[in-house]
Amino acid sequence: MSEPILQLRSVSKSFGAVQVLHDVDLTVRAGEVTALVGDNGAGKSTLVKCVAGIHPIDGGEILFDGDPVALHSPSDASKLGIEVVYQDLALADNLDIVQNMFLGRERGRPWLLDESDMEQAARRTLASLSVRTVTSVRTPVASLSGGQRQTVAIAKAVLWDSRVVLLDEPTAALGVAQTRQVLDLVRRLAEQGIGVVLISHNMADVFEVADRIATLYLGRMVAEVPTRDVTHGQVVELITAGRSGDLGLARPEGVVGQ
């Protein structure tokens, strides 16, 4: 088992009166794929945004390489090497693919951007993702299909020399072949020693690529177990009921309606 890169220790997060995350613990290890599963509204995207520096956490701490870190803004996270593919993709429709991939981290001088460097790097990255559907890297994102946009969002995240990559439902809009490529990419990223967090509702995908499975149930981390120790059925039970045999919450009924 490799050393943890990113650790969440009893992280809590509320939006107004609604508590969305309750004392969540999570460990992301280098070279491993951690699947984060849970029903809609369980708090998966919120957790990702806390790690990305978009939402400040209300309680608990986040450790990076064993040290507590303060993530106040998205640039704090990217400085540490944390990259995120957001569920809503977060692309600017009016910008082209290259401009989106380098948004906020443009190459060149502030007063003269290096367009050729960015375009070449973007093309290399897209090529390594075996993207064949894009007509030109200078196409505005507005004119891309859902799957193409998702690919651009993923390419944007893997463009950087990252330590941790979190992908929030990255295959939701993809076809069979593209999903295959993303799953292969997820494995390749882990093989390079990157800590990968994959959020997905597809159990077959999760069991194929994940080393560990973490389950959120109504904002609580109910189980964080090696994939080989659990079955499909158990994970589904954890997602829907918060409990499966010895795994999960002692009294899941207790948190419902809280």
């Binding site: 390594s128 007509t135 990252s162």
Partner: peptide
């Protein structure tokens, strides 16, 4: 500038930029 090699590039050592067939320049 420090030329960062992207994670994806390292993941796929056989650089297939030339292979990016449909991207018309």
């Amino acid at each position: 500038e420090k030329q960062q090699k992207s994670a994806a590039e390292k993941a796929d050592p056989g650089n297939r930029a030339a292979d990016f067939g449909i991207d018309t320049t």
